[in-house]
Write a protein that binds this DNA or RNA. Structure first.
Length: 670
DNA sequence: TGGGGTGATATTTTT
DNA sequence: TATCACCCCA
């Protein structure tokens, strides 16, 4: 096991009170947390089930779990709670659902579910996506994150802004969620906070379980999460780690002030800084330090390292976005060929996702394997959403969204007239569609044939629900898929046999997810709990799946948080893009600078910037200036490569020094 | 039921 | 300017 440096060691072993670890990029923050968990268990004698760790992402939680398991080699290490705030919230709520007016099996709404509900509330009846519903959903989410109740939401009389529209439906939205037996993602942290505030005895009970709390990525927490931490850390048995320079989620309610607040809320707070960087070479650090030096800081720190100084950071200039992509990909290939590296060693980072398509096109043209984060994710695939909807419905028969999604998937000849009658009747009864269809009163409203089709579906569903609490979950899902003739349906609806097979493989992969989740957790093995964790995993992991092999990584700066790559291409460094246009007027230039800082500090060995002279923007081509952030990097560390320099690598390509087909053969293992 | 054509409209970032 | 939704037609 590698030695820790003195600061890291101090952070691991300090347990006399609340601790804040201010950890710069690449200073071994995750190492400190994992080692601390191991230390608490092995040297301090705390049982794994009494340690709660919160991470920024699900992926980070999984990584940390496996790292700690390797470190501990303790059969009880799977009792450690290591999860995101949302998963932790789910666990906290589990045993007290009655207190907040819920039962096991509630649905968890992703933002799309919330939006379609809001669309309905905003315009009477229409489930089609409206831009207004999206904006209202984000506003309500922000309110929840900031602990603003419907009663507190600012409502100006007769106002027409999005905020007014949101304030008008917020309360109704909450009532509908309750009626549908559903929560949105924000509720998963908000409801535990409210519950602990209103029922101190439940907090006390929880604290019997939780002896030590560790929180990672604190700079990206929002006020609601901060409040939860404050409640859970009451006794001061807490370690918080974060880096104020890497806070990049303000638009989603992340509150940098949380890190400052800690000092006031925990007067005994000890602060330990980690400044030795183990990731990047000296020049990259120096440049990143210079850049972030232009921001105000809560905690001053200067990263240093004792490794190589490294090459100058290159700046590629391109004529337009396609040219930029050509240039970057050419340089990437040239570098790979010259240094015999893997594709997975490279990342292309950009400010906004719309920049990815050009790069995708060029990478595809050159047959370079790439992996795009945040693209269509596994959990967005139609077949996965279908099966998930079945699972939701099994847990919560009142979930009308799920009901509507699966009722004719596969086809059941239930016609629109039936559905109209059914939803009208459900509205009369004040129940969900499922309950309405089981009610005797619906029989008079439908033809014999219609009723037969409907009842065939609902009776079958009832039988699966009855089995769901008895059978092994993965087994149950497989049986269900068989009864649905789901594979045959995939064949029917896919033009191509290959595609149908691929879809079936996806479904089977979902089953293996279920299997994995079922094996993972020891204290909630119920079907309802399993499905809740699966749905939440789907929401949290959206577009964040593991890079599955030797692929060039393509992702937004936000998605790159927490990752590292030997070689980084940081593209689109133009005024108006990074910093983003809006940041100039709404006071978020520092946030943009942090974003640039995060991008730069992902790089271990080489960092290459690029920008274009002209970029298409809302239809018209505009002339671009390179980003002010490049000007904030010491000139001696940058190597500008204007258009003429490009000839070099192009020429090498054409002279055969880089031979694409031989490279390809090499990759194919010939 | 699906596909193709036309018109309008949006342009950060995500746990 | 590119995509997306919607509408119309087959």
């Amino acid at each position: 096991m590698p030695e820790l440096n003195p600061q890291q060691k101090a952070a691991v072993q300090y347990i006399n009170g609340p601790l804040l670890v201010v950890a710069g990029a690449g200073t071994g923050k995750t190492t400190v947390i994992t080692r601390k968990i191991a230390w608490l268990v092995r040297d301090y004698g705390i049982s794994p089930r009494h340690i709660v760790t919160v991470t920024g992402t699900n992926k980070a939680a999984r990584d940390m779990k496996s790292r700690v398991a390797d470190l501990l080699n303790n059969p009880n290490s799977n009792e450690l709670v290591i999860s995101t705030f949302q998963m932790l919230g789910l666990k906290i709520l589990r045993d007290h659902l009655d207190i907040i007016g819920y039962r096991p099996g509630f649905s968890i709404y992703d933002s799309e579910d919330s939006q379609s509900l809001l669309a309905k509330l905003l315009r009477g009846h229409s489930s089609s996506k409206s831009p207004l519903a999206g904006a209202v959903q984000r506003q309500i989410s922000l309110w929840k994150i900031n602990l603003v109740t419907p009663a507190d939401a600012p409502l100006s009389a007769g106002g027409e802004t999005i905020q007014d529209a949101a304030a008008r439906v917020y309360g109704e939205y909450e009532r509908y969620l309750q009626a549908y037996h559903a929560m949105d993602v924000d509720d998963l942290t908000l409801k535990p906070v409210r519950m602990f505030q209103n029922h101190p005895e439940i907090l006390e009970e929880w604290m019997k379980r939780q002896r030590y709390l560790l929180i990672d990525d604190y700079q990206n927490t929002n006020p609601c999460q901060h409040e939860l931490v404050r409640l859970l850390a009451g006794g001061g048995a807490v370690t918080v780690a974060g880096d104020d320079d890497q806070s990049i989620n303000a638009r989603f309610g992340a509150c940098l002030d949380n890190m400052k607040q800690l000092q006031h809320e925990f007067p005994a707070l000890k602060v330990i800084k980690l400044e030795q960087n183990y990731r990047s070479c000296g020049r990259i650090l120096k440049a990143a330090n210079a850049l972030i030096g232009n921001n105000a800081h809560i905690y001053d720190k200067t990263l240093w390292c004792d490794g190589d100084y490294g090459e100058p950071l290159r700046v590629l200039k391109a004529r337009g976005d396609d040219h930029e992509a050509e240039r970057v990909v050419t340089e990437l290939l040239y570098h790979k060929f010259k240094h015999n590296t893997d594709f997975r060693d490279y990342a292309i980072l950009f400010r906004d996702n719309s920049q990815s398509s050009v790069f995708e096109r060029v990478l595809r043209e050159r047959r370079i394997p790439y992996y795009l984060s945040g693209g269509t994710s596994f959990f967005d695939k139609t077949e996965i959403r279908d099966v998930m909807a079945y699972l939701r419905l099994l847990c919560n028969p009142g979930d009308d969204n799920a009901f509507m999604r699966v009722i004719n998937t596969p086809r059941r000849e239930i016609d629109t007239a039936t559905l109209q009658q059914l939803s009208a009747y459900a509205a009369e009864l004040g129940t969900g569609l499922m309950q309405a269809s089981l009610d005797a009163g619906i029989e008079r409203r439908l033809t014999v044939r219609q009723l037969e089709c409907l009842r065939a579906f609902t009776n079958w569903l009832k039988s699966v629900i009855e089995r769901s609490s008895l059978e092994d979950p993965a087994r149950l899902v497989c049986d269900m898929l068989g009864e649905l003739h789901y594979e045959a349906w995939l064949m029917d609806t896919s033009n191509d046999l290959k595609i149908a097979q691929r879809r079936m493989e996806n479904v089977l992969e979902l089953v293996s997810w279920i299997q994995r989740l079922a094996n993972q957790e020891e204290d909630d093995t119920s079907f309802n709990g399993l499905v809740a964790r699966l749905i939440l995993t789907g929401i949290l992991d959206k577009g964040n799946e593991e890079n599955p092999g030797d692929f060039v990584s393509l992702m937004s700066l936000h998605a790159a948080r927490g990752l590292e790559f030997p070689h980084v291409f940081f593209v689109g460094l133009e005024e108006g893009l990074l910093p983003h246009q809006d940041s100039l007027t709404d006071n978020s230039l520092e946030e943009e600078r942090r974003l640039a800082y995060v991008g730069m500090t992902r790089a271990k060995k080489t960092l290459t910037f690029s920008f274009v002279e002209r970029r298409k923007r809302s239809g018209e081509v505009i002339t671009c200036e390179y980003s002010r952030f490049l000007k904030e990097i010491p000139a001696e560390d940058l190597c500008w490569e204007d258009l003429e320099r490009e000839q070099d690598s192009q020429a090498m390509l054409s002279r055969g020094e880089i031979n694409l087909s031989s490279l390809r053969n090499m990759l194919n293992g010939n």
